[in-house]
Simulated assay, not measured.
Amino acid sequence: MTTAFPKAASSANPPSPSSDSARAVGLWLLVCCVMVFAMMLIGAVTRLTESGLSMVEWRPLIGALPPMTEAEWQRVFDLYRQTSEYRIDNAGMSLAEFQSIFWWEFIHRLWGRTIGLVFALPFFFFLATRRIPTGYAKHLVILLFLGGLQGVIGWWMVKSGFVDRSDVSQYRLAVHLGMAFFILAYLLWLALGLLWPVPQDRPPAPRGVRRLGAYCHAVIFITVMSGALVAGLNAGLLYNDWPLMGGNFIPEDIAALSPAWLNIFENEGTVQFDHRIMAYLTLTVVSLTWIFSRRAPLAPRARLSVNCLAAMVWIQAGLGISTLVLMVPLPLAVLHQAGAATSFCLSIWVMKELRGAR
């Protein structure tokens, strides 16, 4: 499943009521993009430090404040000690150790609330002052709804780790991450249409190159989703050799679970193998797109977008291999997450540029 983009965000409908308003809205959306990107990195740190289950309560309004007294810290710590993660992995943890993981989850949730305010307040201002370009208001309403839904999905994901397991469900983690990438794509697509619209006199790229650009976006998105399963199962810690897996190209336990389809989602070895194959496929499709683009009559900006995507995907492959063989060190793992989001954003830019004016 790839990201669907609105048709309203194109140069066929020139932004109104003024270009200054369109630029202001575009810059605001771009700021929201950067904040969502940062949220992905904060989420990666939260997951990698196993901090996500430290906040047992979900208080959307008053939860913006951390514990302010020793008694309040003790209360939230006592709640955490009732969770399965504490009993299975962290029995005997001190209050000071609990606070070290609590803060990452608190920052994660606080940053989510901040994104909501940064989006909602300017939106209502632009709406009240009639500065939203024609055709964009409905998309901004959808984004407002999706932001609220993402908060609910986040809590739904966290709740899965409170009963009979010490981590969250990899399925719910994939849904949460997938929604984050969808929101990022939606924001960026609209922002590009306002800030850097494709000139009206530019024809679309040849059909074959446009198709390859769409395939790049699709395989990158699927690779990201397979990476969510790897993260949810901690599958990156199972086989830390490359290019083989335990001395074999295909791991010996690839079909260990029954029924067979369950291996795709719950077998750590299979999940890591699938992520590797998707990474190889991404490299292949993006490299072919770059090769064919060299011979195609592309506008300079369109050619630049393809070049940037090709370079980033190869950098991302290096980050992925390094993260794996070094057994997922925190800095490299966060950089790998950043590389995934950057590659995804560049694939959106490529599709935008190759479409031509609409």
Results as ranks from 00 to 15, higher is better:
L177G: 03
G178T: 05
G178Y: 06
M179C: 12
M179D: 08
A180M: 04
F182W: 08
I183R: 03
L184S: 07
L184Q: 00
A185Q: 00
Y186L: 15
L187W: 00
L188Y: 12
W189F: 09
L190N: 15
L190M: 15
L190I: 15
A191R: 00
L192T: 02
L195M: 09
L195T: 05
W196C: 13
V198N: 06
V198M: 09
V198W: 05
P199R: 04
P199Q: 02
Q200K: 15
R202E: 15
P204H: 13
P204T: 07
A205Q: 03
P206T: 06
P206A: 10
G208A: 13
G208E: 12
G208H: 04
G208V: 10
R210M: 13
R211L: 15
R211C: 08
G213A: 12
G213L: 11
A214H: 14
C216N: 10
H217F: 09
H217N: 11
H217R: 11
A218N: 10
V219A: 08
I222C: 08
I222N: 02
V224Q: 00
M225F: 07
M225T: 06
G227V: 06
G227H: 00
A231W: 01
A231L: 10
A231K: 05
G232A: 03
N234M: 13
N234A: 13
G236F: 04
G236W: 02
L237S: 14
L237V: 13
L238M: 15
N240D: 01
W242R: 01
P243M: 12
P243K: 00
L244W: 05
L244N: 04
G246K: 01
G246C: 04
G246I: 03
G247K: 09
G247Y: 04
G247A: 13
N248L: 14
N248D: 15
N248R: 15
F249E: 10
F249H: 09
D253T: 11
D253Y: 02
I254C: 02
A256C: 01
A256S: 12
L257G: 06
L257W: 05
L257V: 06
P259N: 09
A260P: 08
A260E: 11
W261Y: 14
I264P: 00
F265P: 10
N267M: 02
V271I: 02
Q272G: 05
F273A: 09
D274L: 13
D274I: 12
I277S: 00
I277Y: 01
I277H: 00
M278S: 05
